[in-house]
Amino acid sequence: MNTTAIDTAPPAPADHYCLTESPPRNGTLLGFWIYLMSDCFIFASLFACYAVLGTEYAGGPTGAEVLDLPGLAVNTALLLVSSVVFGFAMLEMARQRKGAMLGWLAVAGLLAVAFVSFEIHEFLVMIADGAGPGRSAFLSSFFTLVATHGLHVTLGILWLVVLMVQTVKFGLNTDNVRRLRCLSMFWHFLDLVWVGVFSYVYLVGVLR
């Protein structure tokens, strides 16, 4: 009974849905949005971990001693610009300009590569200084949260490369447009999570 009730939606929402949206094309985007929201929970639980464990230094280095704010400023700028540039690529996609879109996508991808490289460099410096993830609960929660974000960005870059090859090979067909719009949401979402990371993990971490 319940399933039939869902299949044949009540008249008022169906009316709104048919008149203002086109369901088949948007199904994927809504589904992807729900995936992003569930990804939010992963980050929320890691943020909660850091919030609880962030001052447990176990006699090791504190946030003020190991966190590199100038490096963080560069990384934050890289990711923000990358996010906006991806938006430019989406505007070119809407105008069906494949070359310009691929150009912007390449810029966005390179900025993200620079971001991940800086982050890995920062991690290696910290580990070399004896502030690796095994040192204290503070550093364990720090590395888990920041590296999970970095891993997301890395996989986003991989996805971007795959979609650029697909677009070069098959053009801006319906499938590729849909996939690129999902990736665009993913890309902006990671920048949004980074706002939480730089504000709470770094800037507040330095003060605690």
């Binding site: 849905y17 949206e21 906006v84 979402f189 949004l192 706002v195 504000s199």
Partner: peptide, 23 residues
């Protein structure tokens, strides 16, 4: 507080979330 405001800026201008999208 600034972080929360910025998150909303990202949601509105980059992720284009509004009450109309996807019904």
């Amino acid at each position: 507080a600034l972080a929360i405001v910025q998150i909303f800026v990202h949601i509105v201008y980059f992720l284009h979330l509004d009450t109309r999208s996807e019904a």
